[in-house]
Design a protein around this nucleic acid. Structure first.
Lengths: 231, 231
DNA sequence: TTAATTATTGTAATTTGGACAATAATTTAA
DNA sequence: TTAAATTATTGTCCAAATTACAATAATTAA
């Protein structure tokens, strides 16, 4: 059988795309940059760029995110790889998407390098993005929703201290569905939460108690087994 | 900021690795080939090869699998991408892994191209594989186990007609755990099965009834919601 | 002080889950 | 022909989880 020379294959490039999810004002948002460079100049896009030929994938994701948005040292997890031959107008570029969750209010973002702007954009209100980024984003969001049902990652999105209602509203946003308050509280009984004396401020009604996630106790007792959040 | 010329990046290759899972004799197995070519000549490996520069990823996976094992038209799903800079001794090769489940007895495999041999190998008894293939395989197996809990994919592994015990044993193998027979049968009550008149043959005891999965009814009634298999 | 508003807890009926027992259908050996 | 052996299948009981509501508590605003 005829075989092409090995080196003929080394004509493609790889990129990473970094999907950052955050939560504020009752909505899950993604961090986007405005491209100040061709192709797709002036369109919003997921922060991403080419990987150096000798660079590890995860390292590349961290570096690229930092260069474009100023977010430093954000550990991301791989989601999926997108490789339609014509997805990049300038050549064959296969992109590996990474994602992370963070508390919007804990970080400051600042456009740099070829990013003209950076913004948190609600998933309810997503514009047309560069490349196949709408597809990448929605497919990663689906994965996020799956993970929300099986791992206690919602606490990476919520503020350190939150009310049980805020907790519930995050799930209601993600699953586009309302839950009964009393039953929601029963469902989370195996998630170790610390109840604080502190209460919600500046509300026009009875203030709710603030809670925080007890991560160490969760890990110790391997209650992972009991953590399910099928809605 | 200094930017390298775009073309400097086009020095990497990408490959697909095709992980085929099957089930026979009470064990989950993976299809492996024996490499008849450098590097790692004579070692067992996941069937995989380089992707043509203008080829779609999924197509490449199907083509490569066919060329090496004779398995034709197998639809695979993407699992993960592996890209440590030194994972391939001959250059930067990032590999995208795909996987599929099939009934071993329904297909015939035959080594061809640079594959010297093809074998179904039990996951209980895995030798040292070429490249980082042990890592790729075990990480894909973990993903399979997750999926087994949330989607009715076990029926892609079982024969078309199976006993409830065979069904149970597949889960017992995957989760390395024994289940109570009576309770197992209660747990699957939302999975639509067709009970046939036919019975198990050639057993030395009361033969069990044969069942098959009622796929169309499963899809119609969107009982997906109720399908959970937390063990 | 009271109405309005939301937080929090409770109740009762139903469904599910887990441990284990009982019964049924076959084969094999006596 | 029959009884023992073996595995399939179904049933029971009790504890735990789920669901739909109802009741009570703590604030603010008028």
């Amino acid at each position: 059988m005829y075989r092409i020379d090995f080196n003929d294959f080394f004509t493609s490039a790889f990129s990473v795309d970094c999907i950052l999810f955050g939560y504020s004002e009752g909505e899950i948002k993604a961090l986007l940059i405005k491209r100040a460079m061709q192709p797709f100049e002036n369109l919003w896009a997921i922060p991403g760029d080419l990987i150096y030929p000798d660079e590890d994938l995860e390292q590349a994701a961290e570096r690229v995110l930092f260069e474009l948005t100023g977010l430093n040292n954000i550990a991301m997890h791989q989601s999926q790889t997108f490789g339609k031959p014509n997805r990049h107008p300038q050549g064959r570029v296969i992109t590996i998407s990474y994602f992370a969750l963070l508390r919007i209010e804990d970080f400051e973002v600042k456009a740099s390098s070829w990013a003209g702007d950076v913004q948190w954009v609600s998933l309810k209100n997503m514009p047309d993005l560069a490349f196949d980024h709408n597809h990448i984003l929605s497919s990663t969001y689906e994965m996020l929703k799956l993970k929300l049902q099986n791992e206690p990652i919602c606490f990476d999105l919520l503020p350190e201290r939150f009310t049980l209602n805020e907790f519930q509203q995050l799930y209601e946003f993600a699953f586009e569905q309302a839950f009964d308050k009393a039953n929601f509280r029963k469902k989370i009984k195996y998630i170790p939460l610390i109840a604080h004396d502190e209460k919600q401020q500046n509300v026009k009604h009875r203030p709710a108690k603030l809670f925080s996630f007890d991560k160490s106790s969760f890990e110790e007792e391997t209650k992972q087994n009991r953590y399910t959040f099928k809605m």
